[in-house]
Design a protein around this nucleic acid. Structure first.
Length: 801
DNA sequence: CACTGTGGCCGTGGGG
DNA sequence: CCCCACGGCCAC
């Protein structure tokens, strides 16, 4: 007897059973049960695009002849579709085993009459979601027949006996409500630098659940067998739907898996018997039936935090202030573990980490769930996927709805390195300026794409004609305006959708859960819409179109250039501008005229984004600091906002900017800098504030130049620490002879007395301060002179007479 | 397997 | 000494 089911899709996977693929929909139903719905009716397929004028039946017969018994070709159907907006004929080739699509595609591509093989690289479970128009984290209804299955660790398994229909009454319910969340964090023994999983045990595993329970497992000395066993047991008992961690895809899971192997155990933490976590797409690790979300992926998108360690990110988000938690030096975990007096600190540290991780989940998952509902990628994958992939997934769904075939991603070698001209940055007018308005074009690039109907499907080849055409200035590309471009349709849908969500938000009070839910939704839509221009210029994109991206920037340059002319013709002083922004004198009447002329004359939306009561520029572009009308200091581009300068230099520069902007008192700023220099000279500085952080962007042996952070990284490696591509290297400069890079040391091996304070004066604090003070005629000598304390030599000299 | 684009600044090393 | 490429990060 089929039952009616109402459920939320969490994830989709598949398994080949008895020679046929079976889709597994992991869900939870409205009664709070965890269920699996099986669908054995779906089959993998791909398209063979036919050469023009080809006889489909001849090609079809050739395709059928390729059929192999292991996974026969079960269907070859002629379809009339569109490809880049043009009508085409294609064969839809269906088989049985998803993995064999790869082999068939190669062979079919070689057949005469076949121009291209399409959509053969879409993964089977994603294919299912797209074709059935299903979105993870949304609610559906369907009927299913209960079946007995012992290989799934869930409350019930059903065989689907109907299609899935979206349940609209649950569309605006918080998708995370009622889901069980577990945060975890492991501490590994590291007596020799970085821990080595084949040698060093896991000494602590902390877990925190959203029902309030917290558990901490501890090794017996250096034996972690029971820890691992208990961990598996606990995960199964608590049965979380979502597992969160911080960097667990790169560290905790691989480490636990290796430890399990060493101990002869199996890490069966999924909802499928016998299965261990396994590597999946985008560097993500998949735990069957659960959503394994690495929160580090979300943290990476917070650009305000430069060193994205868990404590820094949790501090920034107000989840756990750094001064209210236990901080221990991570490279000394083994010492803490082995010391009876200090072990307690390590345990407390682990509790704080895992508590922070759960706190981050509450911050990030609502947005992640919306991204999942909108892009169509399961929550765990959407976290790990880049913005471009999230957008592309949505494009693939839109393409299907419009009967468009999805283009292939270009092969690596075919991707030519093609650059094109970007935006205009105006020369700033150096000096301090009073009362400046900053105007901003609203979503300039997406607006251009919509207005001029830009896209690979509308880009006209030489000789092609359309009744209405838009020609990009300077670069010559023409776009057909007779039919709506694919990008335009998608973007307009995004814009309309976002407007609806924003309108709905108004119905709820600001802090309410509904308001926050909708706010996350409109943010997710905006993020996707804003990525569309960059996506077109990305050589690996399925809808890559260099001419399109080139045209968008050309129209952008024209737009800002025209806006500048209008401003000048109105007698408005223009101070600066970058891409889509314009800094002009804040004369309200003229500014309103400017906005009106741009809006009506150029047909683009522009608005006053902010007003600075004072703002200053040096001669450098992309750098300025301002005091807003409501009393806030903005620092843009300068060292103070960069992650690769010492905290001390950044702090000094920020304070100088603030003194100058608020009081206009340059003398005061000079005195302040002198005091900082004095402190440094007397060795009073906090060593932590002298650390310089830089990312290793390639392997250590690939560097041509010996930069300081590369030298420090090599040193770390010799000391037994793992340094991978992407690691942030923190170093300080010590006294001694030779080039700076030879004097760079990993910050955690340096004693305060070894530090070269002169380096920090000459190359950090003074240049950062001067960047601003030079504008007021202050010299390096002036900053350093008065600050010079009697040196030991002077002192002795005087004394000795 | 990948992991959006161009414009811009500036410290540093290394060659002449 | 100058000059320029390398390298990293930031603005938009």
């Amino acid at each position: 007897m089929p039952e009616d089911l109402t459920f939320q899709i969490l994830d989709v996977s598949y398994e080949v059973e008895a020679g046929r693929p079976v889709i597994e929909i992991w869900a939870r139903d409205d009664k709070g049960r965890r269920i699996v719905l099986l669908d054995d009716s779906f089959r993998p397929y791909f398209y063979a695009l036919l050469e023009e004028g080809q006889d489909p039946s001849a090609v079809s017969a050739a395709v059928r002849r390729l059929s192999k018994p292991r996974s026969p070709i079960t269907g070859v159907d002629l379809v009339e579709a569109r490809y880049f907006g043009r009508p085409v004929k294609a064969l839809r080739v269906q088989t049985v085993i998803p993995e064999t699509v790869r082999d068939y595609r190669e062979e079919v591509a070689k057949l005469p009459g076949v121009k291209e093989v399409l959509e053969a690289d879409v993964r089977f479970s994603i294919r299912y979601l797209i074709d059935k128009n299903l979105y993870p984290m949304r609610w559906y209804r369907a009927s299913g027949e209960r079946v007995q299955r012992n290989d799934f660790v869930v409350d019930a398994v059903y065989k689907l006996s109907s299609d899935l229909a979206e349940e609209p009454s649950l569309a605006d319910v918080d998708p995370l409500e009622g889901l069980r969340i577990m945060a975890f964090d492991i501490e590994a023994y590291n007596p020799q630098g970085s821990p080595n999983p084949s040698r060093d045990p896991v000494v602590v595993i902390g877990m925190a659940f959203n029902d309030g329970e917290k558990v901490q497992l501890q090794a017996k000395g250096h034996d972690d067998k029971d820890v691992l066993r208990e961990f598996v047991e606990l995960v199964r008992r608590k049965d979380p739907d979502i597992i969160v961690g911080y960097n667990q895809n790169s560290f905790d899971w691989p480490y636990l898996l290796e430890r399990a192997k060493v101990n002869g155990l199996k890490l069966e933490v999924g909802r499928k018997r016998g299965a261990e976590p396994s590597p999946s797409v985008f560097g993500h690790i998949s735990v069957q039936g659960r959503l394994n979300v690495d929160l580090y992926n979300f943290a990476e998108e917070i650009e305000e935090v430069k060193v994205k360690s868990l404590d820094e990110v949790a501090d920034y988000l107000g989840v756990m202030p750094k001064d209210k938690r236990v901080n221990i030096e991570w490279w000394k975990i083994a010492e803490y573990w082995d010391s009876p007096e200090r072990r307690g600190l390590l345990l407390a540290y682990n509790v704080d980490d895992v508590t922070s991780t759960l706190g981050l989940a509450y911050q990030f998952l609502p947005f992640g769930a919306q991204l999942s509902q909108i892009s169509g990628l399961p929550l765990d994958q959407v976290a790990a996927a880049s913005v471009a992939f999230r957008l592309e997934m949505r494009f693939m769904r839109e393409a299907r709805k419009l009967g468009e075939l999805v283009p292939n991603r270009k092969e690596e070698e075919a991707r030519a390195f093609e650059t094109y001209t970007g935006a205009i940055v105006l020369e700033p007018k150096p000096g301090v300026h009073k009362d400046v308005a900053v105007l901003d074009f609203a979503s300039m690039y997406p607006s251009i794409m919509v207005k001029y109907n830009v896209g690979p499907d509308t880009l006209l080849k030489e000789g092609e004609r359309c009744e209405r055409e838009n020609q990009a200035p300077g670069v010559g590309h023409r776009f057909c305006a007779d039919r709506p471009a694919f990008f335009r349709r998608v973007l307009e849908r995004f814009l309309k959708w976002r407007a609806e969500v924003k309108a709905a938000m108004k119905k709820y009070p600001g802090g309410s859960p509904q308001y926050r839910l909708l706010n996350e939704r409109q943010r997710a839509i905006k993020v996707l819409a804003n990525a569309s221009y960059g996506y077109m210029g990305w050589a690996a994109a399925r809808w890559y179109c260099k001419g399109c991206a080139e045209s968008v920037t050309a129209w952008g340059r024209e737009l800002i250039t025209k806006a500048v002319s209008i401003a000048r013709s109105l007698g408005l002083q223009v101070y600066y501008g970058d891409t889509d922004s314009l800094f002009v004198a804040n004369e309200p009447e003229k500014v309103s005229r400017l906005i009106e002329e741009i809006t009506k004359g150029l047909e683009f939306d522009i608005k006053v984004d902010k007003v600075y009561s004072r703002v200053f520029f040096t001669e450098a572009k992309k750098r300025y600091a301002g005091l807003t009308a409501d009393g806030k200091i903005d620092i843009v581009g300068f060292e103070a906002v960069r992650g690769d300068w010492s905290e001390l230099a950044k702090e000094t520069q920020a304070n100088v900017a603030e003194i100058v902007l608020r009081t206009g008192d340059v003398r005061k700023a000079i005195e302040y800098v002198k005091a900082v220099i004095n402190d440094l000279r007397s060795g009073k500085a906090n060593v932590e504030k002298l650390v310089i952080w830089k990312t290793l962007t390639k392997g250590l042996d690939e560097y041509e130049a010996e930069a300081p952070h590369v030298y420090a990284a090599r040193m770390m490696e010799k000391l037994g620490f793992k340094v991978d591509v992407g690691s942030k290297i923190g170093y300080v400069i010590v006294k001694g002879e030779g080039p700076v890079s030879r004097r760079a040391r990993p910050y955690f091996i340096v004693k305060p007395t070894e530090i070269d304070y002169n380096y920090y004066i000459d190359k950090q604090v003074v240049p950062a301060a001067l960047r601003i003070l030079e504008l007021f005629g202050v010299s390096e000598r002036e900053l350093k002179s008065g600050a010079r304390q009697a040196s030991l030599f002077d002192y002795l000299g005087k004394k000795g007479g």
